[in-house]
Simulated assay, not measured.
Amino acid sequence: MPMDLPQPIAGYVEANARLDIDGMLQPFQRDAVFIDNGKHFEGQAAIRQLFEEEVIPVKAIFAPDTVREEDGDVVVEGPAHGDFPGSPLRFTYRFTLVEDAITTLEVTV
């Protein structure tokens, strides 16, 4: 991966490229929050369900092309492609990291 992403984010992106749910969950704290276009998923079980129901079936793979720090968060942008209407779509992922783990991830189109 050409970009210099913090390890938890790089791990998430690499696992997403393989559509590996366990690998995608690994960098998240147990009580992490995933906000997907305004819908909140709290805890790893809810995030796993989101991945199982909305990411894996449409083979949604995020390919970041920019990264910046903003207000203490890491903001990563890029297209996601898969078997969904409008693919590829450009997404913004805002990660909050604490002690090398993702505590919050907010995804917007």
Rank of each mutant, 00 (worst) to 15 (best):
R18V: 01
E53I: 01
R18K: 14
G82W: 08
L50A: 05
D73Q: 15
F84Q: 05
L89T: 13
E99P: 01
L19C: 09
D22W: 03
L97K: 09
P2T: 14
L50P: 00
G78C: 06
P57D: 07
M1C: 05
T96V: 06
M1V: 14
G11L: 05
I9D: 05
A15V: 07
L19F: 11
E106N: 12
I102W: 01
S87K: 10
G43Q: 05
V98N: 08
L25D: 05
F62H: 03
I35D: 12
V76P: 01
L89A: 09
D71K: 11
H40K: 15
E106I: 15
E77F: 00
A46D: 09
I21P: 04
E14T: 13
E99F: 00
P57I: 15
D22M: 05
M24L: 06
A46W: 00
V33G: 01
R90W: 03
V58Y: 06
N37D: 15
T104F: 00
I102A: 02
A45F: 01
A60F: 06
V58S: 01
K39V: 15
F62V: 09
Y12F: 15
A101L: 02
S87W: 07
F51R: 07
D71T: 08
T96W: 01
F62M: 02
K39N: 14
M3S: 07
K59F: 03
I21G: 05
H40T: 14
M3C: 02
G82F: 07
F34E: 10
M1T: 14
D65E: 09
R30I: 11
V74N: 00
G43M: 08
T103C: 01
P64V: 03
K39Y: 08
I61D: 00
V33W: 00
G86E: 04
G38N: 09
R30T: 13
P88W: 14
V74H: 04
T92Q: 11
V67K: 05
F34C: 06
P79Q: 08
T108K: 14
V107K: 11
E77L: 04
F91N: 10
P85L: 11
G86D: 10
P79D: 11
T103L: 10
R94V: 15
A17T: 06
P2I: 11
L5D: 01
V75L: 03
K59L: 04
V13Q: 02
V75G: 02
E52V: 13
V55T: 12
H40N: 11
Q7V: 09
R18S: 02
A32V: 09
E54S: 13
P2M: 10
